[in-house]
């Protein structure tokens, strides 16, 4: 199966994110760049699918020419082909991004991608929409937030945990799926993989930017509050409180779990 995976180049940030002096962007002077964590899992999932079933993985991103670095990172993990939708650095809304991806998917070759994967949401803008909008544009079903994906013939079964239960979806291919971290353990790039990626060709397309109704005025950093654990107590004397916490988190064996008043 040929799988298209959509990723986004985002700065690698620590616990505190700095904003540029003009308040328009995240300060990346000392940052490295990566793809959003969910997307790395999407690539891994795609690679595993093609390892099982054959086919190819095309990884696509929309961004500055520098985003080719992330395409190569993903190719080092096993993606076969990279597509860069090159932009001038302006921010693209989810609708415009989805439209550009749909256009590109059409241009990329005779065979459509039966499966398009994306991350559930981007680490930076956190819009939660690109996958859904692609699906609507293509008239395909879309599963989001998927943490387990199985493919049986033309049927795709995806599941996720929601409010303590498993939600399972079953749809026919072609489909769009956005995945969440935890669906798999993304591999690290092997050295041979890294060298293959370095030599790989990247297809570059230049889509047209479109405005949407949501306009960024500026970014700022909220006044932070230092996080610190709640101290449950000292030594073995803290065990009752600890037990209550574990109970509250629902990790105690069922025989031990107490309903209700975890005061």
């Amino acid at each position: 199966m040929d799988v298209l995976v959509c990723v986004k180049r985002v700065p690698m940030v620590g616990g505190k994110v700095l904003v540029t002096a003009d308040g328009q962007d995240v300060d990346t002077r000392m940052s490295g760049f990566t793809v959003s964590p969910h997307e790395e899992c999407a690539v891994e999932e795609a690679v595993q699918i093609t390892e099982r079933e054959g086919g190819s993985v095309t990884v696509l991103t929309l961004g500055l020419p520098e985003a080719a670095e992330q395409l190569r990172d993903m190719m080092a993990l096993g993606a076969h082909r990279g597509v860069l939708l090159e932009t001038d650095g302006r921010e693209w809304g989810p609708d415009a991004t989805a439209a550009a991806i749909v256009d590109a998917a059409g241009e990329l070759g005779p065979s459509p991608f039966p499966l398009i994967l994306a991350g559930n949401e981007a680490a930076d803008t956190g819009g939660y929409q690109v996958g859904v909008r692609i699906a609507h544009a293509l008239g395909r079903p879309c599963l989001t937030g998927i943490k387990r994906l199985e493919i049986a013939g033309a049927t795709l079964r995806g599941s996720r945990e929601y409010r303590g239960a498993q939600e399972v979806f079953e749809v026919a291919l072609p489909a769009v799926v956005t995945v969440k971290e935890g669906i798999n353990l993304p591999r690290y790039p092997s050295l041979p993989g890294r060298l293959r990626a370095k030599r790989a060709e990247i297809t570059v397309l230049r889509p047209q930017w479109k405005a949407d109704g949501l306009r960024k005025e500026g970014l700022r950093v909220p006044a932070g509050s230092a996080r610190r654990a709640q101290i449950l107590g000292h030594g073995a004397a803290a065990v009752p409180a600890l037990l209550d916490v574990l109970n509250g988190l629902g990790v105690l064996p069922s025989a031990v779990r107490s309903g209700g008043d975890a005061a």
Binding site: P94, E121, G127, Y128, Q129, V132, H136, G145, D212
Partner: peptide, 21 residues
């Protein structure tokens, strides 16, 4: 997960932007 997903679909159906979070 549900709220975000439903509004994303609503946005896609209506062609309107969604402001998340």
């Amino acid at each position: 997960d549900h709220g975000s997903e439903v509004l994303a679909h609503l946005g896609a159906m209506t062609g309107l932007p969604v402001a998340a979070n």
